Computed example of a mutant assay.
Amino acid sequence: MTQSGPEAGSAAGGQTPGDEPITVTDRRRIDPETGEVRPEGEPTPDTGSAPASGEEPALEEAKAPATDEVAELTAALQRERAQFANYKRRTEEEKQGRVAYGKQVLIEKLLPVLDDLDRAREHGDLESGPLRAVADKLAGSLSSEGLVKFGEPGDVFDPELHEAVQNDGSGAEPVLGAVYRSGYRLGDKVIRTAMVTVTDPAPAGASGAQDAPTGAQ
């Protein structure tokens, strides 16, 4: 008589329905046998064994190259940023230099006009009228750009600022006599020296002595 039911199955196969095989999937990124990093998507073998004892050192070895690469990339980025900052600074300095040079060239071309206005002022042609307004506006505009006029009678003679065309003094304490052409400074740079004569300073009280006879008359 043939047996049926659970007893028959148990006797035939030696297993009960609940005795299914247990499968363990190894999902570790580091191969415990070779110590290498497994590529993405590579199938991993099924194993039921415990993690190998060398797995933790292998993980540390895999992290070390990645850490070195990050440090190298960080240093390269810092170098690039420093080079860009230096390039930006040099570009700005060159830009400012070109602007200053262009300003100086333009002002130097206007200096003869200022000389003509100075001569007209000496002759009294700028006392009133539209020419005086034009002269004042031009002088104000150039002054706002940093142009400074120098060289007045009585100023101490400075060979770096004044060009002497005549010397009427002893040379002990030279001062400016007549000023034939004014000098100009643009910022800290002298763009034209003053053309002057050199003489000795007036004696102290000389002007007072000259005024006394005039007052007595």
Rank of each mutant, 00 (worst) to 15 (best):
V113K: 00
L138R: 03
E61T: 10
E33W: 01
T2K: 11
V175N: 06
E163V: 03
A50N: 11
G14R: 04
V134P: 04
T74L: 04
I22C: 02
P57C: 06
G54W: 04
S143A: 14
E7N: 11
T214V: 15
R79K: 15
N86E: 15
P130N: 08
A139F: 05
L131T: 08
Y184G: 08
S4Y: 13
D211R: 13
K95M: 13
V134Y: 05
E108S: 13
L73P: 00
D155P: 03
L111P: 07
D211T: 12
L111A: 06
P201E: 03
G97H: 09
Y184E: 05
A12M: 03
V198N: 01
G13Y: 14
A85M: 09
S144C: 00
R38V: 13
P17M: 09
P153W: 01
D158L: 00
D19I: 03
S53F: 02
L176V: 09
I30C: 07
T197D: 07
L110C: 10
L186G: 09
T193R: 15
G9L: 13
P39Q: 08
L142P: 08
L131D: 07
H162K: 06
T199K: 10
T214H: 11
R79A: 15
E42W: 02
P51G: 04
Y101C: 00
E108I: 10
S49N: 09
T2L: 10
M1D: 08
F150Y: 14
E33N: 09
G146C: 05
E173W: 04
T2Q: 08
H123C: 01
L131C: 07
A216S: 10
E108N: 10
A8Q: 03
A206N: 05
K149Y: 00
F150T: 10
A202L: 15
S144I: 02
S4A: 14
K109T: 08
E56P: 01
Q3M: 13
E173T: 12
P45E: 11
V37W: 01
E61N: 13
A82L: 13
P32N: 05
A209W: 00
V175D: 10
P32E: 03
K63M: 09
Q96G: 02
V134D: 02
